[in-house]
């Protein structure tokens, strides 16, 4: 531990994942993760956001003991990684950078193999647990097919089933809905909620912001290897202000009235005029519009989304995200 990370505050009690000054510099000199202080509260559904190359995957690999940090510490379930991997990892189910399967084995045999690799898995209950995991992701009917014949969505489901072979205390799901159709996405999201309600902490990385908003209680945003922000999703979204939106055929007049009422950054787009809401009762703003003869079809404040928060924080759109 270097001097900088030694001076950092102690990690909070009850954190399922806690990193202090976690840094990874690859051999080429590229700094992939830079001084990360991440805290994932127990029982949370934690969304992990960031564009491509922001260091999310490197972070997840360090948490799973696949990559050794250059400096800093990572604790998972209270124990240091990668040192305590043998005792920690049986309690962790993981889907990392998409599923990886043995194409020449059947779906069921893939799970049997991964379960055989877990020293704590009881061989006597193996078949039953594999059957239950397949059932949970809706793959029972396809369990006898070779994995190379699976569609991307089926592979993804099998990868999630692999993470569910045992009761877990932490699930790390990297892009779990990748390749799934909308129905499959809904199923996986309700599965995540169900698991979380059983007390499992879920660490979920995704590039779909609305997905994070729908299922996550907490979130962290990474950009260029650094942690931009972390906290409860509601707080993050509240950090970005919503926009006042007026729908009207009389856009020019409406824009003028809004400016007079103290609204900033007035933008006209089609039959909509949006602006930063002024610091006064919006009912009065509406009354002023009507008094000025503006025919108002719609009036309201569009709630700030996580995407607004993300753009405000990173200064970039989410098009490049992965």
């Amino acid at each position: 531990m270097d001097a900088a990370s030694a001076a950092r505050p102690p990690e909070p009690e009850g954190a399922v994942i806690a990193t202090r000054g976690l840094t990874k510099r690859y051999r080429g000199g590229q700094l992939a993760v830079d001084g990360l202080d991440l805290t994932v509260p127990a029982g949370s559904v934690f969304g992990f956001l960031g564009p491509n190359g922001s260091g999310k995957t490197t972070t997840i690999r360090m948490l799973m003991g696949l990559i050794t940090p250059t400096s800093g510490t990572a604790r998972v379930l209270g124990s240091p990684m990668p040192g305590a991997g043998r005792t920690v990892l049986p309690h962790v189910g993981a889907l990392i950078e998409g599923p990886a399967l043995y194409g020449h084995l059947h779906g069921r045999d893939n799970l049997l193999r991964y379960d055989a690799a877990d020293p704590t898995a009881d061989p006597r209950t193996r078949r039953a647990r594999v059957g239950a995991a397949l059932d949970r992701v809706g793959l029972t009917a396809a369990a006898g097919k070779k994995a190379k014949a699976y569609s991307l969505g089926m592979k993804q489901r099998l990868g999630i089933a692999c993470a569910l072979l045992q009761p877990r205390r932490l699930l790390v799901l990297d892009e779990p809905t990748n390749g799934l159709d909308p129905q499959g996405m809904r199923e996986i999201r309700s599965l995540v909620r169900e698991l979380a309600s059983d007390g499992t902490t879920v660490f979920l990385s995704s590039h779909l912001l609305d997905e994070i908003e729908q299922v996550c209680t907490h979130a962290a945003v990474m950009a260029r290897g650094r942690l931009v922000t972390q906290g409860a999703v509601a707080d993050l979204a509240a950090g970005a202000r919503g926009r006042l939106t007026v729908t009207t055929p009389d856009t020019a007049e409406a824009a003028g009235v809004l400016k007079d009422q103290g609204a900033a950054d007035v933008v006209t787009d089609g039959d909509q005029v949006t602006a930063e809401p002024p610091a006064r009762d919006l009912a009065e703003v509406n009354a002023a519009l009507v008094a000025a003869g503006v025919r108002v079809r719609g009036f309201g404040v569009r709630r700030a989304s996580l995407e607004d928060a993300f753009v405000a924080l990173t200064g970039e759109g989410f098009d490049v995200a992965g």
Partner: peptide, 18 residues
């Protein structure tokens, strides 16, 4: 679920035959 407190995982008992 927030009441679930993370402590050191209970010792796991690896089977000698695994």
């Amino acid at each position: 679920r927030a009441e679930t407190v993370a402590t050191a995982p209970p010792p796991v008992r690896p089977s000698p035959l695994w």
